[in-house]
């Protein structure tokens, strides 16, 4: 019984903004299935009443005073842009409200 189907892999790829060729989709479905089978080992672990660890070590909340500091020069900020107009990045047209 497969743990993950090719349709699920394609849905996930879409969420992650990856386009997969047919061969890639097939190979990745197999790889993910193998990995999910492996991590199922954790099912045998009793974690009732175990707090999850998000950070390995206890550290006090780090806060920054509210002081404005110099930003990058605009030329540096957009210097790496694949496409730009003036100091703005440009992208294919954004349709309002539609997450892409």
């Amino acid at each position: 019984m497969a743990r993950i189907t090719r349709e699920e892999v394609e849905r996930i790829a879409d969420l992650a903004r990856l386009t997969l060729s047919a061969e890639e989709a097939q190979a990745l479905t197999h790889d993910l299935d193998t990995m999910l089978e492996y991590v199922q080992a954790l099912d045998g672990l009793d974690t009732q009443n175990v707090e999850p660890t998000a950070h390995p070590l206890p550290v006090a909340t780090a806060l920054r005073p509210d002081r404005a500091r110099p930003s990058l020069a605009p030329e540096e900020a957009v210097g790496n842009a694949p496409e730009r107009e003036g100091s703005a990045f440009t992208v294919p047209k954004v349709i309002e409200g539609v997450e892409s």
Binding site: L42, L45, T47, T53
Partner: peptide, 25 residues
């Protein structure tokens, strides 16, 4: 892809949260 999958709706507790608990152990 695997990371996206384990965080996606319905799988978070079974995978990510479980792993964080195992991390505690």
């Amino acid at each position: 892809l695997l990371g996206t999958y384990v965080l996606s709706a319905g799988y978070y507790d079974a995978y990510y949260r479980k792993a964080q608990q195992a991390r505690t152990l």
